[in-house]
Simulated assay, not measured.
Amino acid sequence: MIDVAKMSQETKACINACLDCHELCKKMVSHCLHQGGAHAEPGHVEIMLDCSEICQISAHFMLRGSPLLRRTCEVCAEVCDRCASECDRFDDERTNMCAEVCRACAEACRDASPVARAA
Rank of each mutant, 00 (worst) to 15 (best):
C102M: 03
N96K: 14
M28E: 02
E107S: 11
V4N: 13
C32D: 06
M1F: 15
R110K: 15
P67C: 12
H60F: 12
V79R: 01
A38Q: 06
E46F: 10
A17E: 02
E93H: 09
P42R: 10
C32I: 01
E100K: 13
E23H: 09
H22V: 01
A108K: 01
G37K: 10
V29Y: 03
T72I: 10
H44L: 10
R94A: 14
M7P: 04
A5E: 14
R71D: 12
I54L: 11
V29L: 09
M28F: 04
E100H: 09
A5G: 10
F90H: 07
F90R: 03
S66V: 09
E10P: 11
F61M: 14
C18Q: 01
A84P: 00
N96S: 14
C73F: 04
C87W: 01
A108F: 00
M48N: 08
E46I: 12
V115G: 00
V45R: 08
M97W: 03
D50V: 03
L33W: 04
C32E: 04
A84S: 07
V4R: 13
H31S: 03
S52W: 05
R89I: 07
C98M: 04
E100F: 02
M7L: 15
D91G: 07
E10T: 06
A17D: 04
M97Q: 08
A17N: 02
A38L: 12
L69K: 02
C32K: 00
T95C: 13
C102F: 05
C80L: 06
A5Q: 15
S113Y: 01
C14L: 06
T95A: 02
D81G: 11
R110A: 03
N16H: 10
R103L: 06
A5N: 11
H31C: 03
C87D: 12
S52F: 05
M7F: 08
P42M: 09
H34T: 12
E41N: 14
H22D: 02
G43H: 09
N96V: 13
I57A: 12
C98W: 01
A118N: 12
S8W: 00
E78P: 03
Q35N: 07
C25T: 06
L68C: 10
A59P: 15
A13K: 11
A77C: 10
I15Q: 00
L19I: 08
A119G: 13
R110H: 15
C87E: 01
R82F: 10
C21T: 04
L63Y: 02
N16P: 00
L69S: 04
S85H: 13
C25V: 01
A116L: 04
E53N: 11
C73S: 05
C51S: 12
M1W: 13
S58C: 13
C98A: 15
A59Y: 05
S52G: 09
R89V: 07
D91L: 11
A119P: 00
E100M: 08
L19E: 09
